[in-house]
């Protein structure tokens, strides 16, 4: 199978093993600009590994990953890091905000990694925090805000660089339904309005329902549910 026409990020026949544990065993994936794709599957099925490979965090053992016409396998670590800084955004289960930085500094962090000046970065960060309704937390430290608020800060951080792909790994995993859904709404709204694609790893169907399409990973193999039946 070749990458579907017009896809922004596509992977074929990915294989990855951690020692004796096979995490990916021929997985496939593709996503179009502005699309929200849910990656589902039981725990340990390899969905997080798929996300890490797609995002260029972990190189796969074999297989190809093409982002915007470029083969990720052909890049070295520095190039992949640069790509992550400029084109990708990340949201993790437990926010992973830097505890010693204030919320606005956390949101500004990816911009500063790209070399934006501190003042400009924090200005842009504040705009995003407003959109995610957490601008009143800007001076607080992550330890002082609630889980839902923290996760919204994390979403703002993922979107602040205007990424073309946002990778979200169980973004609501640590939240209750109400907070989780709010985060999903804000994430998908914001992503759609900036035409960013979202790769959403989740095991919750209600979270996956915010996607346009889902694929299921079982035993390291992916199954595109569009093609089923």
């Amino acid at each position: 199978m070749s990458a579907p026409a017009g896809s922004l990020l596509a992977a074929e026949d990915l294989r990855k093993a951690y020692g004796p544990t096979v995490a990916l065993d021929g997985a496939e994936f593709s996503i179009h600009p502005g699309e929200v794709v849910a990656v589902m599957g039981p725990s340990g099925s390899g969905k997080s590994t798929l996300l890490h490979c797609l995002a260029g965090i972990v190189p796969p053992d074999s297989g190809s990953i093409v982002y915007d016409g470029r083969e990720l396998a052909g890049m070295n670590d520095a190039q992949r890091s640069a790509l992550r800084r400029s084109d990708f955004g990340f949201v993790f289960q437990f926010g992973q905000l830097v505890p010693e930085l204030t919320c606005v500094e956390n949101v500004a962090l990816p911009l500063r990694l790209n070399g934006t000046s501190r003042r400009q970065a924090e200005k842009a960060a504040l705009t995003w925090m407003e959109r995610l309704e957490v601008d009143d937390l800007s001076g607080k430290r992550p330890g002082e805000v609630s889980g839902g608020q923290g996760q919204r800060v994390a979403v703002a951080r993922a979107l602040v660089t205007g990424p073309r792909v946002v990778f979200a790994d169980e973004p609501t995993g640590a939240l209750d339904s109400l907070n989780g859904e709010r985060v999903m709404e804000l994430l998908t709204d914001a992503a759609r309005s900036s035409n960013a694609a979202v790769v959403l790893v989740t095991h919750e169907a209600r979270v996956a329902a915010y996607s346009d399409r889902e694929i299921v990973v079982r035993d390291g193999k992916s199954r595109d549910m569009e093609r089923v039946a």
Binding site: S86, F90, L113
Partner: peptide, 9 residues
């Protein structure tokens, strides 16, 4: 690890 994911050098 999360910081590395962001592309932190």
């Amino acid at each position: 690890s999360a910081l590395i994911a962001f592309g932190t050098r």
